[in-house]
Design a protein around this nucleic acid. Structure first.
Lengths: 202, 202
DNA sequence: TCCTCAAATGAACTTTGTGTTGATTAATGA
DNA sequence: TCATTAATCAACACAAAGTTCATTTGAGGA
C-alpha cells in the first residue's frame, strides 16, 4: 500500500480504480463486485490493486472520504444567520442549491450509496454530517427547552431523515428537477406543516 | 431445503440460525458474514445450514419476510378515516401506538436491520410498506393537484423518510420513550410545521 | 541521454469460503 | 419399538482472495 501520491503513475492508477468501482457499483451494486472485476474494468493487473488498497472495502472507504471532504467544503459556506434572515417562500436557500449541485455532479456515487443497494453506514455518515454542520449550528439560536411540542433531538432526527429522503427520492427519479427546484421545496416544507404542504389547509 | 415446520428439530435449528444471523449482523454487518460464521455461532454443522436455506441471502430474506408479515397484519387495522377524524393534539393516533409496540417486541431485528450495519434494501421495503399501506390510502382524500406548495410525491418521500428517521432514532436510543409518547410526537409533527414543532413560532 | 528507483505486470501459490455429496449418527413420533 | 428424517462428518470441486517474486516499464534526476 503506497503512500507517495506524487508519482503520476500512482495517481493515475488510483483514479482508474476508483472510476472502475463507481461504474461497477452502478451496474451491480457494491457487494457483487470482486477485485478482479475492478481491475479488469480498469485495465490493470489484479496484483496492482493490492499495492494501493487492502481490499474493496478499503477502496470504498477512501472514495467515500473524498466525497465527504467535498461536502465539508460546501458546509463551510453555510451560515445559520442567512437561514434565519431568509423569508421569501418563492426563492430557495442558496446553500441548499449548492449542495444539490454537488450531488448532481457525483450522481453515480450518491445514487448508489444512498440507494437500496448502498451502504447504510454511509447514510449514517451523511446524517451525522447534516446534524453537525447544519442543525447544531441552527440550534444555537434557541435555548427554550421547556414545554416545546416536540423534543429537539426528535425533531432533529425527523428533519434530517426527511431531508435525506428527498435527496434519495430526487436521485432515484434520475434528478429530473433542478437543484433550484428541490431547494425551493425544502424551503417551503420547513416553513409549512405537512398538511399545509399538501395544500389541504390555509 | 425442508418445508415441514412441524418437527421440533427443524424449528429449533432455523430459530438458532436466525438468531445467530442477527447477532453477527450487529457485530460486523451482513456482507462480511460467512455461512461458517453463522453455523459456528449457532453451534451447528455447516452442512445443516444448506438443508434449510440456499445461502445467507435466502436466510436474510426469509427472516425479513416474517417481520413484514407481522407489519401487514397491523396495517389491516388502519383506516384513514380515523386519522382524518382524529383532532386531539394530546392523544396519539392509536394505530401508530400499535406499530411501535410491534417494533418494541422485535427490537433486536429492527434495530439491527434499520441501523448503520443493516440492510438498506430493508429500509426501502419498509418505506414501500408505509407508502402503500398508509400514505396511498390517505391520498385518496385529496385530488387537488394544482398549485400545491409541494408536489405530492415529494411530500410523500419527505414524510415517509421522516417517520422512518424517528423509528431509527427511537431504536438507537434504546426505546427510552413509550410507544404512546412517540406516537404523540408523530401526531404533533404532522399537525405543525418544523418551526412550530421546535417551539419557535406561535 | 543514460541511469536508477519504484511502479506495474504476470504467473504461481496458499488460503478461505462456497455449495454438494454420501455415509453415519441421533432424535422424533407413530 | 421401529421407521423416518434431521443433523453430523468428511471429502470434494470450484471461485475468489490475498501473497510472493522475478521481470518489464516508465518517471525523474544527474
Amino acid at each position: 500500500m503506497s503512500e507517495n501520491t506524487n508519482d503520476p503513475r500512482i495517481v493515475r492508477t488510483m483514479h482508474m480504480l476508483r472510476e472502475a468501482l463507481l461504474e461497477l457499483m452502478e451496474e451491480q451494486g457494491f457487494e457483487r463486485i470482486t477485485v478482479k472485476d475492478i481491475t479488469s474494468k480498469a485495465g490493470l493487473n489484479r496484483g496492482t490493486f493490492y499495492l494501493h488498497y487492502a481490499d474493496k472495502y478499503d477502496l470504498l472507504e477512501k472514495t467515500t472520504e473524498d466525497m465527504m471532504q467535498g461536502l465539508r467544503q460546501i458546509a463551510q459556506t453555510f451560515d445559520p444567520l442567512d437561514l434565519v434572515l431568509h423569508e421569501s417562500p418563492d426563492t430557495p436557500f442558496p446553500f441548499t442549491v449548492r449542495l444539490f449541485e454537488y450531488f448532481g455532479k457525483h450522481v453515480r456515487f450518491f445514487s448508489v450509496m444512498l440507494g437500496p443497494k448502498g451502504d447504510p453506514a454511509f447514510s449514517s455518515k451523511f446524517q451525522e454530517f447534516m446534524r453537525v454542520h447544519l442543525l447544531d449550528k441552527f440550534n444555537e439560536f434557541h435555548h427554550s427547552e421547556d414545554h416545546v411540542p416536540v423534543p429537539w433531538d426528535y425533531l432533529t432526527a425527523y428533519l434530517i431523515s426527511a431531508h435525506l429522503g428527498i435527496v434519495q427520492y430526487w436521485l432515484e427519479q434520475g434528478c429530473k428537477h433542478t437543484p433550484w427546484d428541490i431547494a425551493l421545496m425544502f424551503t417551503r416544507m420547513t416553513q409549512l406543516s405537512p398538511i399545509q404542504s399538501a395544500g389541504l389547509k390555509k
